[in-house]
Write a protein that binds this DNA or RNA. Sequence first.
DNA 1: GTGAAAGCGCTAACAA
DNA 2: TTGTTAGCGCTTTCAC
Lengths: 338, 338
Amino acid sequence: MSKVIIDDVAARAGVSIKTVSRVMNNEPNVSERTRDRVLSAARELNYRPSLSARGLAGSRSYLIGLLYDNPSPAYLAEVQAGLLEACEASHYSLALHPCHHEDPGMPAAVSAALAQARLDGLIITPPVCNVPALMAAVEERGVPYAVISDEAGPSGIAVTIDESAAMRDLTEHVIGLGHTRIGFIAGHPDHKGAARRRDGFETAMKAHGLAIDPAMVVQGYFDFESGRHGARDLLSRTNPPSAIIAANDDMAAGALQVAHDKGLHIPTDLVIVGFDDSPLSRQVWPPLTTVRQPVADMAREAAARVIARLTGAAEPDNPANLAFPHELRLRQSSLGDT
Amino acid sequence: MSKVIIDDVAARAGVSIKTVSRVMNNEPNVSERTRDRVLSAARELNYRPSLSARGLAGSRSYLIGLLYDNPSPAYLAEVQAGLLEACEASHYSLALHPCHHEDPGMPAAVSAALAQARLDGLIITPPVCNVPALMAAVEERGVPYAVISDEAGPSGIAVTIDESAAMRDLTEHVIGLGHTRIGFIAGHPDHKGAARRRDGFETAMKAHGLAIDPAMVVQGYFDFESGRHGARDLLSRTNPPSAIIAANDDMAAGALQVAHDKGLHIPTDLVIVGFDDSPLSRQVWPPLTTVRQPVADMAREAAARVIARLTGAAEPDNPANLAFPHELRLRQSSLGDT
DNA sequence: GTGAAAGCGCTAACAA
DNA sequence: TTGTTAGCGCTTTCAC
């Protein structure tokens, strides 16, 4: 049951192994009748082509690599789920490649790993896709790839939401509640997305005639602890903010904890909002107003596009830069119990 | 740089390809001098054996599969991190295999996938490893495997903490705070670990002469929402508990949210504790008292053991059942600001 | 201790 | 539309 090979299928279907190969790879020039015969033979024998043999002969590995650097578990899980859906649909497998984006040797190491594992395609998440040396190495290797970000190299696919617009919407929600002194905890400086979000914040503020007080903007790193630090800084100012916008949910949760420790009531004493619609945003108290981005959908599309290039499928008409919609999620951290 | 093959290394080292193969696989019967020559040639050429070719010729895939069913992202990320460490150390790769543990066709599908991908080894997490039909299929295939659980089949490796003892410790902490009416939100009925935790709770209660009121035990499913439901049930009793123990942190966080909504002050009005030391337990307010289990260490060890079997390395002396230590993490949800 | 030969199961290039 | 012949890069015999 375990050792069914292409010859077995060929014998049972009464054709040559090459024909079986054609059918298994959806190649043209096979009559419908033959194709059906082969397919049923394969099904009856429970035949699955050996990945190793395919890889060796065809110099394709049927592996898509996921390159990431210590993202939040929730983000990682969602990305993986989306990628796996697309991979499974096309009989590709997913290979994980954690790395450290600040390591100067990383691009070379990734390049070597690409060569060894013969990865057919690559999906790259922030902040790794914001490392120029890495992107250059990937481009040079000529591997089809996608980034979950708004900017890919010349040959790459970019899948993203409009982070600036999303943060603008979120900021306008807060402004609409009547706040004028709004604190901002920025995201990791190595993430381009963090800069986009900050842009969105500043754009919305300016659009509403609100000055951006440098004392109201603090540096964060997308992690919970930096959210705590940022909130402590903001709230210790002589003229503290009445609302805090964090560039992601983890930091917003950190800010929330600090606020609770200080005995502040959310949202009456202080409004706090996040970004990402992570599970955490729903699990803290009160639940956080945030922005949802369809990470799993984006990841699925990224993998599907890469696989389409691999299989030579007709490129969809849409541009290589795919923008997904975002959505405001209004919750009690800004609205109260209304 | 990309197309270095074994012949190149052999030529440079002045030996046959078989000798290179011997060196690359740490086989015996190679003189020190030859070994060194081959190794430096390989290093200079930046040679990496092709996984496909290795797999085809040796009928090994150098792939370890991870079989899981919708665990919490934090758990999944930690397991993956541990596995990847062990895999990278031995030049194995990790293949992800999400599945649905209640799907009756799942064991057969997994078996087929095992055959296709020629996975060399398998790591199985709860609750998948608690599905008898699956475990039977895996045993039948004869693939080396490990479960992150306390019970493996005859040929398997089990890596776990003593969940019963851990929950006993946690319960005793709560009892030690003076509570006698303690609510319990049980874990998913398909998880053996959930039953172990419940045992631990009951053992501790009995040991301290406390009756287990059936009205104080509610069914949960390890997810946030079931924690909310459970807490609502418990707190709506005519004689509600003064402390709630949840079988994991996600459910404890749900209970916490319900308590906040009811205006209860934690821990003075109600003590809430969880289990797992997930990031969430630190990110809610107040932070949750919980039990830490070294998931990444356990996963690393599981993979290392499986790989050791694969490479025929001497089996460590320790038994196949490996128990890791757990640790109580006392935080404000039971202690207050002391 | 080392090497030559023979595949592993597939796909690529060419024939038929 | 289908089949034949060579490999892909490595490991496995089995020889020396």
